[in-house]
């Protein structure tokens, strides 16, 4: 290229310059990667992985068919319901933007006040902008007790 030809010897990159610059760049990149990975752990908390824990919610005798209970389990608000002997645990965290969709006994619906999201008794979307039904947690009945598997959010919120 013309530009290359016009360069004086002073401007030309020597092998030594090239190697030194390359070594410096590589070292800096290595430091960056190491510092970045440590820094990442600092700014991106361990809470990224939330363990699921099985929590004793209540005894089956306290939740007869046709009844509901609003409970706080492992930092999660949960509506426990016994429909003809089948126990379900529905999260009240609205699937739209995370407000609390409270269970309203009078209208038999979950109502989120933030953007007026309405869910039916099974947590299915009735109306509003929310993308999906309310989350449901796995329920297990052991020796007459109701256990619910919830994400461990204790200390959160």
């Amino acid at each position: 290229m013309d530009e290359e030809k016009n360069k004086t010897p002073d401007q030309a990159v020597t092998r030594r310059d090239f190697l030194v610059s390359g070594a410096m760049a590589t070292s800096l990149a290595a430091v960056g990667v190491v510092a970045g990975s440590f820094g990442w752990q600092f700014v991106y908390p361990a809470a990224a992985k939330i363990p699921t824990v099985q929590v004793l919610a209540t005894s089956l005798s306290k939740l007869p068919p046709g009844t509901r209970k609003v409970m706080k389990l492992g930092g999660n608000e949960v509506v426990l319901m016994n429909t003809n002997g089948t126990v379900r645990a529905i999260s009240t965290v609205c699937t739209h933007l995370g407000c609390r969709a409270a269970w309203e006994e009078g209208r038999q619906q979950f109502v989120c006040p933030c953007h007026t999201g309405i869910f039916d008794v099974n947590g299915k979307v009735v109306s509003g902008p929310q993308p999906r039904a309310l989350d449901e947690f796995a329920v297990e009945i052991k020796s007459g007790n109701v256990y619910v598997a919830v994400p461990q959010k204790e200390g959160a919120g």
Binding site: V43, Y44, P45, A47, A48, I50, G75, P151, K153, A156, G157
Partner: peptide, 8 residues
């Protein structure tokens, strides 16, 4: 999570 410093 970066903004919240956790899930909630």
């Amino acid at each position: 999570q970066m903004i919240r410093g956790g899930v909630a």
